[in-house]
Simulated assay, not measured.
Amino acid sequence: MGVRETQKLETRRKVLEAARDLFNEIGYEETTIRAMAERAGVSVGSVFTTFASKAEVLSQVMDDRVEALYRELEHVAKHMRGSLADRLRSLFAIHYDFECRRVRLFLAHISASFSPSLDKNTVPYGRNPRFKDMILHMLADGVNKGEVRAEADLTLVLDTLMAVYAWNYRLAAAQNSDAGHMTSIMDRQISLIFDGLKPR
């Protein structure tokens, strides 16, 4: 790797670290490219030669953050025991615990995802197939083990779980709820969902 490429990668790393901290400290809307550049110790032009937009920076920050999480979840999911509902409770609890470490950053990601002026370089919340595939696999396993009705629409169940999971972040935004509080609510919501999925 040449000097220029090494410098570009180092600039990218600095900008992503600066942006991650700024998004979490002051929010996505308030964070400017200029503020990122100043925090990273690089020029504004360097940011624009590395990223097309602030939205692309946010997408990359989120992608980098969750990569390690999903690798860990994929490993942990194979070893989870208990009922399907219990395993899903554990999966979502791990997710809440992780995201609540930088909750304003995650709220910024959700907000940007549903903006009417969504930038084409933004990967919106909910488009990560790895987490959804993990849950679908668990749901299918639940059908095979007789915990879920065979005729259940698993895609609809997945969408419902993801919607409930995301909706609970309103508690962090409006009430400063922590991961434990959101997890306890999600646990009850999963119980309610699974009451309707039991074989009859």
Rank of each mutant, 00 (worst) to 15 (best):
M1W: 13
V3C: 09
R4I: 12
T6H: 13
T6A: 15
K14V: 05
V15H: 00
A19V: 03
A19F: 01
N24M: 03
E25A: 14
Y28E: 02
T31S: 04
I33Q: 01
V42P: 07
V42W: 04
V44G: 07
V44T: 15
S46I: 10
T49K: 14
S53G: 04
K54D: 01
E56I: 01
A68K: 15
R71C: 08
L73A: 06
L73R: 03
R87L: 08
S90D: 13
S90C: 14
H95I: 05
Y96I: 00
Y96W: 05
F98V: 02
R102V: 08
V103M: 07
L105G: 02
A108R: 03
H109Q: 10
I110V: 12
S111M: 10
A112F: 06
F114W: 11
F114I: 10
S115F: 03
D119I: 05
D119T: 02
V123Y: 08
V123K: 11
G126P: 00
G126V: 03
R127Y: 11
R130G: 06
A140H: 07
V143W: 04
N144F: 11
N144W: 10
V148Y: 03
L154K: 02
L156K: 13
L156T: 11
L156V: 11
L158R: 00
D159A: 13
A166H: 04
W167F: 14
R170Q: 14
L171C: 06
Q175W: 15
N176L: 15
S177I: 06
H181W: 13
T183G: 06
I185R: 08
I190V: 14
S191T: 12
S191N: 15
K198F: 08
